[in-house]
Design a protein around this nucleic acid. Structure first.
Length: 663
DNA sequence: GACTAACGTTTTTTT
DNA sequence: AACGTTAGTC
């Protein structure tokens, strides 16, 4: 085993972390302190010490992070090693666990995973069914309450509001009846399986001899319980994180997991990484001065390895339009002056709504840009439709998928029939699919409708047989089916522009091609559907797209850029208005801290006097966080200062030009 | 059952 | 300002 790393290239704390492969270990890794490198080296060290790759588990926060870690291992050691290891998110891990043993909890192994709009659609139905017509609650709010309960380790049906309890119970029953689980259930049931079945738990404990959890500050109570099931004595578990970068409290993340790690695993070795290789001292000093205002943190100070640097600028703007224009203009100027590439610049914002003005300003000036985390590829209507068809081929008893595409494209099975079918399915305690197959139901329908239903059933059943029995490539079967039902022509009719037509057609082509390639490798349709449900993978990958980066503060965690613009640093936006009522101001401060520490060379914070919110102009005040920053490396300026100076520069050059011309 | 028009709501962050 | 939903009409 060739461990391609050297102790010499690491600093003292990093070496200590790499050396500590036994017992509980807590690595507190500040921003930019070489965390990923340390973790990768630590894994390489395990391999050198004779631990087999397949006995190593590394849990990451996102699928992207998992892919990156695999890549690092590949580079440092080998592709085979990287592939033999388990590197995934908690959710993916649970899918693995559950695909193997969920039958012991009374589900069938081909369970469907409902995410996002599936859940909303289901909850909407339940609202109607349970008489929530005069109910002001939105499906998202109810789902939020359910999710919150699950992630805190509570029973979702025990809610303060009785009506929410009723809906939560109905929701769980409905999922169960449809042999489906939602995103949170993956964790709930994964933990349940390990807790209630010792043999399963012991098998996993024996298999995963070394467990590493990255971004540990973002884990919730349920994930902690899962981890405790997964790791038994002598607790060879290593968690890595930074409490100062905990920004997912709203999603149930428990900073207590990292703050009181010793409560969960006894006598851990605690290692502090504070040496920052990313940013200038000006940036780090400013960041430190902000974060020290948070109470109850693990004290830590980022130490710069790069003295000095240009000051951090705080620029006041008249409005958000000027803010966007200023940034666009300056990026052009700076790119030419300092010989930078578009990719060296990033604009960070609190909410996605702030993005539009920036986009406009960049587009007007033909500056290429890439947006991270905007609209998910998998949330697009046509993609969800195609995936629903794929889901039906795998398990037609998934009602959500079936109802989604029952009349897309129009095949004469409208709302009336859909409601009848749903009613019948409940009457016979079977899925809607089985209702459609039931002669007792179809005989009630008009001849025409019955024909349509029978045709639909035959189409899905036929496709399923081709895959299950004839072992045909699922992607090809799907392609044929989509073609024969004339889905694309139907979709095209609803498109307003040529461009929209192209984008949608291309999206469908892309998703089907992905499935074809997946199937060609011999992988099952089910695992494709899992990958799709678990992936929030955005259509535009940061590496593949070029240009200036536009990104939310949340999505920026883990990234770095030479030039960072942090816009909209206003009271009500950052800290966000809602955080004040919810008492999560500290988390907003951490969010700003995360943003600041993304910058390598130069950081610019901007705030506006007015901002357009839902089409209306509103006045705003600079963020109170700005007062907390230490002034040593700060430079305050206004839009007028900068634009005024530029105007006079122009005048000056005009003046010289005219002088030369005259003489 | 499909299409159109008016209405209302949205904007915190996402595995 | 833009999208989705709903009601009303053909």
């Amino acid at each position: 085993m060739a461990g391609g790393f050297s102790f010499e290239s690491l600093n003292k704390a990093q070496r200590e972390a790499v050396g500590a492969i036994d017992g509980p270990v807590l690595i507190l890794a500040g921003a930019g302190t070489g965390k990923t490198r340390t973790v990768t080296c630590r894994i390489a060290h395990m391999l050198e010490r004779g631990i087999a790759a397949e006995n190593i588990l590394a849990v990451t926060f996102t699928n992207k992070a998992a892919a990156e870690m695999r890549e690092r291992i590949t580079d440092m050691i080998s592709k085979d090693t990287a592939e033999a290891m388990t590197v995934c998110t908690f959710h993916s891990l649970c899918v693995r666990i559950l695909r193997g043993g969920i039958d012991r909890l009374g589900y069938k192994k081909n369970f469907a995973i409902y995410t996002g709009s599936d859940q909303v659609g289901l909850m909407k139905q339940l609202l109607v069914r349970k008489g929530g017509a005069n109910c002001t609650l939105k499906p998202e709010q109810i789902l939020g309450a359910i999710s919150k309960a699950k992630n805190a380790g509570r029973d979702p049906s025990e809610q303060e509001d009785d009506f929410i309890s009723i809906l939560a119970t109905a929701y769980q029953n409905e999922l169960r009846a449809q042999n489906a689980v939602d995103f949170d259930d993956l964790l709930v049931l994964g933990e349940k399986l390990l807790t209630e079945h010792e043999d399963v738990r012991d098998a996993f404990r024996a298999y995963y001899q070394r467990v590493t959890v990255d971004e540990f500050q973002d884990t919730n109570s349920l994930q902690m319980r899962l981890l405790q099931q997964l790791v038994g004595p002598p607790y060879h578990v290593c968690v890595v994180g930074d409490d100062d970068q905990s920004i997912y409290g709203w999603r149930g993340a428990e900073v207590a997991n990292i703050l009181q790690f010793e409560k969960f695993f006894p006598n851990p070795q605690v290692i502090l990484l504070e040496e920052n290789y990313r940013s200038t001292n000006a940036v780090l000093h400013t960041a430190n001065s902000l974060i020290k205002h948070n109470i109850g943190r693990r004290p830590k100070v980022l130490i710069s390895t790069r003295a000095g640097g240009v000051p951090v600028r705080i620029v006041s703007m008249p409005g958000d339009a000027e803010e966007a224009e200023f940034i666009a203009e300056e990026i052009i100027e700076e790119k030419n002056l300092a010989k930078k590439t578009w990719e060296d610049f990033a604009v960070l914002f609190r909410t996605n709504g702030q993005c539009r003005k920036l986009e406009e300003a960049l587009r007007e000036r033909k500056i290429p840009y890439r947006m991270v985390g905007a609209q998910s590829f998998f949330d697009r209507r046509e993609i969800r439709d195609v995936i629903a068809y794929a889901q039906l081929m795998a398990a037609p008893e998934s009602d959500v998928a079936l109802l989604r595409v029952l009349n897309a494209p129009n095949r004469g099975i409208g709302q009336t029939t859909a409601v009848l079918a749903t009613d019948h399915s409940r009457a016979i305690h079977r899925s809607v699919w089985e209702a459609l197959c039931d002669p007792a139901f179809t005989s009630q329908l008009s001849t025409k409708t019955r024909g349509s239903v029978e045709e639909f059933v035959a189409m899905i059943a036929g496709a399923k047989t081709k895959i299950d029995m004839a072992k045909q490539n699922a992607g090809q079967v799907l392609r044929e089916m989509i073609h024969e039902m004339e889905y694309i022509p139907w979709l095209m009719r609803g498109c307003k522009t040529e461009k929209e037509r192209d984008v949608r057609t291309e999206g469908i082509g892309s998703i089907i091609k992905q499935l074809e390639e997946y199937s060609a490798k011999g992988k099952k349709l089910q695992s494709f559907l899992d990958a799709v449900s678990l992936s929030s993978e955005r259509e535009d990958d940061l590496e593949t797209k070029q240009g200036v980066t536009l990104i939310t503060l949340h999505a920026s965690k883990g990234l770095e850029f030479p030039y960072v613009y942090l816009v909209g640093v206003e009271e009500g936006t950052l800290p966000h208005k809602r955080s004040i009522s919810e008492g999560t101001r500290d988390e907003e401060r951490r969010l700003l801290y995360v943003g600041i520490t993304r910058a390598r060379e130069r950081l610019t914070l901007t705030y506006c006097s007015t901002r357009t919110k839902f089409g209306k102009e509103e006045g705003c005040q600079p963020s109170s966080f700005l007062d907390e920053l230490d002034g040593e490396f700060l430079q305050l300026c206004s839009y007028d200062d900068i634009m005024g100076r530029e105007a006079s520069d122009d005048e000056l050059s005009n003046f010289f030009n005219s002088m030369n011309f005259d003489s």
